Amino acid sequence: MRRVKYSAVHAPIYSLLALCLPAGIAVGQEVAKPAQKPSETSKADERWIPKLRLGDDTAYLEFYGQINKGLLVYDDGGSTDNYFPVDNGNSSTRAGFRFYSKMENNWSVGGNLEWEWTPYSTTNVNQLNKGDYDWEAQLLRKAEVYMESKEYGKFWFGQGSMASDGSAEVDLSGTSVVGYSLISDMAGGPFLRFDDGTLSSIRVKDAFTNYDGLGRKLRFRYDSPSYGGFSVSSSFGTQVVPEPSDVAVWDIALRYDQTIEDVKISGALAFSRPGDGNSIYDASVSLLHQPTGLSLTLAAGYSDKESIDGHYGYAKVGYQTDIFEVGKTAFSVDAYFGRDIKGKGTDSDSYGVQVVQNLDYWQTELFVGARTYSYDDEVSSVQDSYAVLAGARLKF
């Protein structure tokens, strides 16, 4: 399990955030405008839990978070196990603070401090640790500050997303809370079972990945302004949580976000250097036809190593509609095909189906997803496994 060790490594992050927080709010007070009148509130403000915010749109301090729990049923071909209440690895339970303030000359400053807490996550529970909660499984996700200008772009410093983070996970289907290109998040912890009935040492997450760039690091990052829907970002950094590393990493990513007539299009393409001689190439694109609610999502990744070159392809077809007044209902089916992920000569295939019901007033998504995991290698025979995850994500 991941544990955060608060040490001197983190001191620069917290010090910088502490200095910028009061400064950002102070600047914002000079240009503050009156808060919105009650009559000006939008439908988004009609929610069970109001925004926990001090300030207005020109300068604010905001507390936010989410709780994402459910029931995981996993069948490894030889036995069936239930895990409840399990943390949904697709989108972890987390909480944090944001601050933002407008400055002079069209500049703004902001920051983010965020933790996650997953004592019983779908990415770690398995047949051998069933019922064992790791209450110390907390992780510092973000501790960052930034300055932004519409003309010059956005400059980041601190613990947060590298430029390539999320580049393989663009998804407009409305069902990513229970299924997206990183299909192992749904049930990554359990072990696969050999045909002779014994458990292997291979976890689902060992055989299925999406090569989604470099994740979150202590980094410098720059995002360019958007030109015709296109923007470029790059970052340089190193890992400090959950365990410090002295390896320097860097990446670059190209993103596109645009609506052309009735079709919303989002996509990303990234190149990453993890610092171990490996190169990672990944991309994803998602199209949503807004009048009909139909969507198509594609993702692919390639890891260029000296001994083995792993790669995969992923596709999802989705549909969103207003069946109930409480919020949209989203349906999707997907497929994943991986080669040489766990090792040379291995095949990793998966098929899934997902349903998500939004409860807008309650800021909640009810979800259920089912998935197959099929793994083969040149040495042993492994049984297919099946997983079902159902639960709810509440945002505040």
Results as ranks from 00 to 15, higher is better:
27 V>Y: 12
382 V>F: 08
277 G>A: 01
64 Y>S: 14
97 F>V: 05
381 S>W: 05
320 Q>D: 04
238 T>Q: 15
390 A>M: 13
12 P>E: 11
323 I>Q: 13
343 G>W: 01
393 R>Y: 12
286 S>K: 12
181 S>F: 04
382 V>W: 02
134 D>K: 15
195 D>Y: 03
125 V>C: 05
395 K>S: 14
88 N>G: 15
3 R>H: 13
163 A>F: 01
302 Y>G: 07
356 V>R: 11
376 D>N: 12
253 A>D: 00
375 Y>V: 03
219 R>M: 09
223 D>N: 06
58 T>A: 07
245 S>G: 13
175 T>G: 10
286 S>I: 06
178 V>E: 02
3 R>L: 02
43 K>D: 09
301 G>A: 02
74 Y>I: 12
128 L>K: 01
242 P>W: 12
228 G>F: 11
275 G>P: 04
380 S>W: 04
268 A>T: 02
125 V>K: 05
287 L>P: 00
325 E>P: 03
132 D>T: 07
328 K>G: 15
112 N>C: 04
339 R>S: 05
105 N>A: 10
12 P>M: 01
11 A>F: 07
171 D>T: 13
393 R>I: 14
86 V>I: 15
337 F>T: 06
175 T>D: 05
112 N>I: 07
255 R>S: 15
311 H>W: 03
266 S>T: 10
211 Y>A: 03
8 A>Y: 08
18 A>E: 11
342 K>M: 06
87 D>C: 07
177 V>P: 13
143 A>F: 12
115 W>A: 09
337 F>D: 03
177 V>C: 10
10 H>G: 09
195 D>C: 00
197 G>T: 14
294 L>K: 01
46 E>I: 12
364 T>F: 07
239 Q>S: 09
47 R>Y: 11
317 V>P: 08
298 L>H: 11
191 F>S: 11
170 V>Y: 00
343 G>S: 09
220 F>Q: 01
215 G>Q: 07
245 S>F: 13
291 P>I: 15
90 N>G: 15
272 S>H: 04
229 G>F: 12
117 W>A: 13
279 S>P: 02
178 V>K: 07
157 F>M: 04
295 S>V: 10
72 L>Y: 10
205 K>R: 14
137 A>H: 11
318 G>E: 06
218 L>P: 14
310 G>Q: 02
292 T>H: 09
142 K>F: 06
342 K>H: 08
44 A>P: 03
94 R>S: 05
183 I>W: 05
314 Y>C: 02
60 Y>G: 13
353 V>I: 09
205 K>H: 06
295 S>T: 11
268 A>V: 04
260 I>E: 10
312 Y>R: 03
355 V>T: 04
18 A>G: 13
140 L>Y: 12
235 S>D: 06
257 D>P: 06
76 D>H: 08
269 L>R: 00
260 I>V: 15
87 D>W: 05
276 D>Y: 11
338 G>T: 00
75 D>W: 15
305 K>N: 15
171 D>M: 08
201 S>G: 13
35 A>F: 02
255 R>V: 02
335 A>D: 07
375 Y>H: 08
30 E>W: 05
202 I>G: 00
274 P>F: 02
241 V>Q: 02
263 V>I: 15
48 W>V: 10
384 D>K: 14
387 A>N: 07
117 W>H: 09
63 F>P: 05
203 R>T: 12
371 R>Y: 05
159 Q>H: 08
